[in-house]
């Protein structure tokens, strides 16, 4: 059976969160311009240039059939917010709501970090240590890349609690001021941005590797979710090569970058449809590397199920992904 390392849940109305905020803050948020943006904020890839967004679906944890990490995806969008303090209030309310309403037998929550305040977020996280409803954390991407020391307080708590860090884009990257840009300059359409999203995973992975994050936190497990996975071998070769050329610039990187990825990094299947014809790419995946691929459904948005993964990748890969998923769950549970 597969385990789902990235599925989403969201509120259908932002007003739902008001009781979980200090009253004054609830009043501050309670304005049409913001509450009316719930549909926009709920389009987690924002690849549409249309002037409407599809209606939301309420999340019902009891309907999950496989053990899943549930990401309160509306929290990710604070990477494009102008007010970092409001972001903290919102993320706290959303996390509280998620733990209350969305955790279940098959649903463990990925707590959202307020990326504008890693220190404060780390303190908040400490309160949740030992809470079995929590399965992971997720960090909305900012221009402070994930290898930077400012994230250390978060990683310290996370490593101790044996939570993996799930990374997924919020959708405003390359669009909102303050959110991380995508490669190049403003893109001609939203589809281009969607196509180029894996670059965010690449850049942040390079940052984690070269800054020596996995030496500071050797048990840290980072899951790059929803970016696909075919991009990985090319980047690993390139990072290894740069390391051979310029190791003296980062002498704390004692192993070649690809070796670190084999210990600390995972990628996920969605969208599996971009990885059809394994014969054209699987030769680039060593046995070791192919053990780093786990399943993500991306539900309730355009999503993959087991059949979709099998249709694209074939039964051999499906089996492998299933056993990888168990492996990752085991690492997290055992605190290895």
């Amino acid at each position: 059976m597969l385990r789902d390392f990235c599925r989403f849940a969201g509120v259908t109305r932002f007003e739902t969160l008001f009781p979980r905020m200090p009253e004054g803050w609830a009043r501050h948020f309670d304005r049409y311009e913001w509450t009316g943006a719930v549909d926009l904020a709920s389009n987690h890839i924002r690849v549409s240039d249309r002037f409407s967004h599809p209606p939301l679906e309420a999340f019902e944890p009891e309907r999950l059939t496989v053990p899943s990490i549930v990401i309160p995806y509306q929290g990710l969008i604070v990477n494009g917010w102008a007010d970092p303090v409001a972001a903290a209030v919102f993320v706290d309310a959303l996390n509280a709501h998620a733990l209350d309403q969305w955790a279940g037998d098959n649903a463990r929550i990925a707590l959202v970090i307020n990326p504008h305040d890693p220190n404060g977020s780390a303190e908040t996280l400490k309160a949740h240590r030992g809470d079995s409803r929590v399965g992971a954390i997720t960090i909305p991407l900012t221009t402070a890349m994930l290898g930077q020391g400012i994230w250390d307080p978060v990683y310290r708590v996370v490593e101790e609690a044996n939570w993996p860090v799930i990374i997924h884009f919020s959708g405003v990257e390359g669009a909102y001021l303050g959110a991380p840009p995508l490669a190049g300059a403003p893109h001609t359409n939203a589809l281009s941005r969607h196509i180029l999203m894996p670059h965010l995973a690449e850049s942040n992975l390079a940052s984690l590797v070269f800054e020596g994050t996995f030496y500071r936190f050797p048990r840290l497990q980072v899951v790059l979710a929803g970016f696909g996975f075919k991009w990985l071998p090319s980047l690993l070769r390139r990072m290894d090569q740069e390391w051979r050329n310029f190791r003296s610039d980062m002498p704390w990187v004692k192993d070649k970058p690809s070796a670190m990825v084999m210990r600390n990094v995972w990628v996920t299947t969605y969208p599996a449809g971009e990885a059809t014809r394994p014969d054209t790419w699987e030769g680039e995946f060593s046995d070791e590397l192919s053990r780093r691929l786990v399943f993500s459904s991306n539900a309730p948005f355009d999503s993959d199920d087991e059949q979709a993964v099998e249709a694209a990748l074939g039964g051999k890969w499906l089996d492998r992904i299933a056993s990888n998923s168990l492996e990752l769950s085991g690492i997290v549970a055992a605190g290895r």
Partner: peptide, 8 residues
């Protein structure tokens, strides 16, 4: 490149 400014 995407993300933030690389360090090295």
């Amino acid at each position: 490149p995407a993300g933030g400014a690389p360090r090295f």
